[in-house]
Structures are given as C-alpha cells and as structure tokens.
Design a protein around this nucleic acid. Structure first.
Lengths: 244, 244
DNA sequence: CAGTGGTCTAGACCACAAC
DNA sequence: TTGTGGTCTAGACCACTGG
C-alpha cells in the first residue's frame, strides 16, 4: 500500500536526487505522525530546500500538492500552516455512462423516453440563472447495462445558449455523448445526494417508488451562460468509489 | 464565470509573460471548441513551447493539470492524446463533521451510542483485509446540528494496528477527531452510495426505516495495515456539492 | 516595507515505451 | 534505438499581505 517507501534519508544515502515525492512523503509524515501537529507554522521553502538538499522548486511542488489535499494553508508572507481541521479532499472520476458500463464487460443499450421543448420550470430557472422566456429542451432517457436499467438521465438543455440542440433527435444516442462532442464548458457544479425513487424513476429503473436512489446532478456553464443541467439516477446498489 | 478571460494573444500583445493558466485555457479551448477533437494527437511540449513563446516547463504544468482533469492521456514516447471518453474528474472536499456543521452556523453536539470490542465481522475482514483473530473496536455515535441529528457514524478501528484506541472512551468527542489527531494514513478508499435506512439509522436520524439515506464509507490504511473503516449515514436531504 | 509563496526560464538528464 | 514526457536545478522577478 505504501507507494512512497523510500525515505528522505534513503535517497540521501544513495546519492540520488531528492524527488518531490520524497519531500511530499516526508512532510506528510511530519504532519501526520511527526512533530508538525495541527496549527504548526512550517519552515519556509528556502529553509526546507536547504534541509532536504534540493531546489526550492521541488519543495514548492511537494507543498503545493499537500496544499491541494487540504492539509495545509499557504499564504504569501504568512507562510504555510497545518490546518486545524483537515479537509481530506478526494478526487472522483465520472466517466461517460456508456464507458462505465462497457468497462464492466456488460453490453450497453440506450433508450429515449421523452423529448420535448418546454419553458424552463421555476426550479431550473433558479438553478441555472435563466430568464423566464428562455426555452429549454427536456430529454429523458435510460442507459442499460446487460439488459437491466442502469441509469435514468433527466436532462435540460438551454436552447438560448445551444440552439443547434433542437435539431437533435437523441433517438439512438444520448444527449451526453452529443454534448461532449459539441459543447465546451468552463464551469461545472456537481452534487451527490440520495432520494426516494419517484414514479418516473421507479418505472424506468424497475424499482418500487420510494426505493433509495443515488443521484448525481451536474450543471454546466460556458462563459457565464448556462448550457445544461442533468440529473442522473442510478439503480439501487450503485456505488461510486475512489482511492487516493 | 470565465476565470481565464485573458487569451494567449492578449498576453502576447501586452508583452507579459505567458502564464501556465493562459496555456491551460487555450489548450482547453482547442480541445473543447477548437480543432483538437477527441482522439487528436497533440503537438509535443517543445513544439508548443515554441508556439506559445514560453518555456517547456510552463507547457508541462498546463498539460499536467489538463491531464489531471482527465481530458487527455499522456505517455512517454507516445505523446499526448485527447481522450475519446473524457473522465470529468471532480474534487470533493470532505471536512470533519463538526467543522461542516459549525460552518453553517448551527450548534454542534455529539452523542455516543455504543462502544465495544468485537471480533471483526466477515464483511469487515474482507473489506479491510484483516485476519480472523484481529480484534476491532466498534463505535457508533451521532453528530447533531442545531438539535437535529445530522449524521450517524458507524466506525470500526483495527486494534492490532492501533491498540491505544482501546483506552479511549469516545464519550465526549467522536473517534474521527481523535483519529485525526493521532493517526497518519497513507491510503484511503472512499465510496458514495444510497441505501434505505435500517433500524439503527432510522432510530438515530429520526427517520422511517427504508427512508433514502446518503452514505459515505471510508477505509484508511497506513503502510499496508488497515487502520479504520467508517460508514457515515447522512440525514435525508443531505447534499454534497463541488464546483470546478 | 519586507518576507513568503507563486511562477517563469533555460538547460539538463532520465525513464519509459513505441518502433 | 530514439522520441516524448517527467522531473530537477539555480536563479530570477513578481504578487500578495502581515506588521
């Protein structure tokens, strides 16, 4: 499990150059078990560079990654301080449904449930900052894995921002694949939650109404304009996992 | 919404140095709207450095971040290729419950439900790779936000790896805070899922059995040894969000 | 104002993997 | 074998911000 078995002294002894991985591992060690408990003000980069016998650039890279993990707070002039309440940031990879399904070896199938142009409902206008007159394309579809429903996709596309979507039928492939190939994005908001299956979800995922369903919602913008909002309901037992 | 409004030509015109942010933005643009569609083999770093008029280091940093986003695949000798199925990696920050609750302004309260030493159940042995004789400390507790139950924490601590845990009562503060202050970790596995509330969860979160509950599970190792496994059940309506 | 992190550079060597 | 990314260096200037 320990991917960073080489210690700083190991590296020093063998005469190898110090890697930012070594520095990162050693600093993590000092923060977690070592003398640098929560709240500690760490030495500056120059000082650490001297101690480790490497360039400041290397220290900087190591510290930046530790900072990205949420374990320390870095500010110019103030220095680097160990967080009193670590954040433990984790990275989740969300592949396209089709790829996710095919990766398990199951066959993939797509089915369109509903497609239509509607005025944006209130909750969507609020969510995506739309004006009352904005029209949206509403698409509901299902992704199957090996014959069983895997995910219900409930998508809204802002036609003001993406008028060419109106020409798409989405009868054979889902809007997600089309969007990926067509639309850029500059800002994304993702949410995870759990809800009970409503009638639509229950019908298409073959669940009972009220069954617990894992939900991922994603809103996407491009240069300040709302592009699309999608709500993906996964079948019972679905689990999203990551290691770090 | 566009945090990278300055284009490469802007930067070039004004005579400023090119930042890795500029490069990153421009390359993202070319991947999303520009000529570099899925499957494209990108120019090498040296070539890009010439084009952008910056050092290879700067290109490398930009490309590394884009690679971290999951949009391209980088391999020595093979070069950098735009993924046909983008990954859309997202970063989630999971603060300590206490901090999460207090940040909303609500008051925090902790209550221990149950504490005892048990042999590790089968599913846990499989999950954490324990031997049949390993003893574990099992702690169940609840975290309240403003008087209402917010999260039920169901935790198992490997006493073989962490014998000093047996001396802790966890009557006034939760095991998570103690662990953070005490134990390092080198490897973490996190899962998200949704389930129906069982009797324990229903009782302590004030739900009906079967109510949909958002679940986070985290297993932690240190140098190959399993430290702890925790299952956190959030009250109905909880939502975990991130932007990027 | 001055100290600390943020970033860029030019050059170098290395590791991996495609050919 | 050789091309491409991975990383380190030494030095430099800058940007932010605490005092």
């Amino acid at each position: 499990m320990d991917r960073e078995g080489k210690t700083v002294s190991d590296a020093a002894e063998s005469g190898e150059k110090i890697s930012f991985r070594d520095v990162r591992a050693e600093i993590l060690r000092r923060i977690t078990i070592g003398p640098w408990g929560p709240g500690t003000l760490l030495p500056g980069e120059v000082e650490l560079a001297q101690e480790f016998g490497c360039s400041r650039t290397t220290i900087n890279r190591a510290m930046r990654e530790i900072s990205d993990l949420g374990l320390v707070d870095r500010r110019r002039k103030a220095g680097t301080r160990v967080r009193t309440t670590p954040l433990r940031a984790a990275r989740f990879e969300m592949p396209i449904v089709r790829a996710e399904i095919e990766r398990t070896g199951a066959s993939y199938r797509y089915a369109l449930v509903q497609r239509g142009v509607e005025p944006a409902p209130d909750w969507l206008r609020a969510q995506m900052n739309l004006t009352p007159k904005d029209r949206v394309l509403h698409v509901v579809c299902v992704h199957y894995a090996g014959g069983a429903a895997f995910q219900l996709e409930d998508r809204w596309i802002n036609l003001a921002a993406l008028p060419q979507a109106e020409a798409e039928e989405f009868s054979r492939t889902g809007p997600n694949e089309w969007l990926i190939a067509t639309v850029p994005f500059s800002e994304v908001e993702v949410s995870f939650t759990a809800t009970g299956a409503d009638a639509l979800v229950a019908a298409h995922l073959d669940h009972q109404p009220g069954d617990p369903v894992f939900i991922v919602e994603r809103a996407t913008w491009w240069q300040g304009a709302a592009i699309t909002f999608v709500r993906m309901s996964y079948r019972k037992g679905y689990r999203m996992t990551t290691r770090y």
